[in-house]
Design a protein around this nucleic acid. Structure first.
Lengths: 190, 190
DNA sequence: TAAGTTACCTAAGAGTATTAGGCAAATGTA
DNA sequence: TACATTTGCCTAATACTCTTAGGTAACTTA
């Protein structure tokens, strides 16, 4: 019997591809085994179980996304950085919808803390340094940015913006301009 | 054999409760049948299949949420309406996390168009009427609001805000103030 | 009370997740 | 080169899950 020469890493990468093809929810050991041309049981030497598989795909996606975002904001500040970061997010989601869904997979606290997820919030904080926000408002602003990026992309992926004018592209740039303006005129706390 | 006296509607309501107990993803025919004390196969006289069950729970949740939001914004305008609407969203999600997840279940286009989802965007548009937005910017603003509300609540539910100060409650009010301020000073298009 | 409806059942087929144990291909060692 | 070890993949088996088909007994209505 010829071997496929798989490793845990190759399995996870194939899982990520599969997620982009059929959706992250639909990625299961049996489906992935089919794609790889091996028996389902054979996967269990590379991955602990179905949940472990999904977790690893999520970690991969978080890492990839952080890498791309980090490259995008390098050397930029203020509005430019904000736009570059946001575009990276949206582009990644449209090119890799399954991976993006994976990045939103709910990890347990420890795994999340050790994931590339923390780089994401660090980058947002870095972007905010280009705006003159009161120190105490920074976390609020980070949470707002995270909410908008995740929320917008998810709604768009769900098709919520595709059945009415104006185009989602247009809204996206307007929304980013609005956010930029908001960050430059953040309301003073009471 | 004593009958449980179920109907499609009671089944769906039980499904919604189950979602709040164990999570929407985990709601399956077999699990629901267990909760109801009947055999799995018996569910199929009330519901077409697993997907149909989830769809109906989603529609129920959208309806409930729209009802509550509609009651909350009645008689209010501007900042008050914005806050009332937003709080309804967040409260519903924290009291009914499973139903809230259900409300985000991806419906096919026709079902979505016939769902209470359309009431949600109508309400957001109504709220925006309290602000003096350029007509063309209204849709962009609706999309921004939807993104923030969905995004924030989802991140919060995922625990993203629970492991660092300040509290999510605090961020939520700051974020809403920021949104209010943004809507009152929406940047002029180029 | 007889007829019709229907809420629930049992039975069965196909598929999935997971574990246990086996063999043969790749790899390291003498 | 020959041997031992590791390991990548297999078959087999268990215990689910979803779904369909057909039956029966409990309610409803005339």
């Amino acid at each position: 019997m010829a071997r496929a020469g798989l490793t845990a890493e190759r399995v996870v990468r194939a899982g990520a591809e599969l997620a982009d093809e059929i959706g992250f929810e639909q990625v299961t050991p049996s489906e992935l085994a089919r794609k790889l041309g091996i028996k389902t049981a054979s996967l269990y030497s590379h991955v602990r179980n179905a949940h472990d598989l999904k977790t690893r795909i999520a970690l991969l996606a978080l890492e990839e996304l952080a890498d791309q975002a980090s490259a995008a904001i390098a050397g930029r500040a203020g509005r430019d950085a904000l736009r570059a970061f946001a575009h990276t997010y949206r582009d990644y989601a449209s090119q890799h919808p399954g991976r993006f869904a994976a990045a939103r997979f709910r990890l347990d606290a420890d795994t999340a803390a050790a994931s590339a997820g923390v780089r994401h919030s660090r980058m947002m904080r870095a972007i905010l340094r280009g705006y003159d926000l009161p120190k105490l408002q920074e976390t609020h602003a980070v949470r707002l940015l995270g909410s908008v990026f995740n929320g917008y992309v998810e709604l768009e992926l769900a098709g919520s913006f595709s059945h009415s004018a104006p185009s989602s592209d247009e809204s996206w740039t307007e929304v980013l301009d609005a956010l930029d303006s908001l960050l430059r005129n953040w309301p003073a706390p009471p």
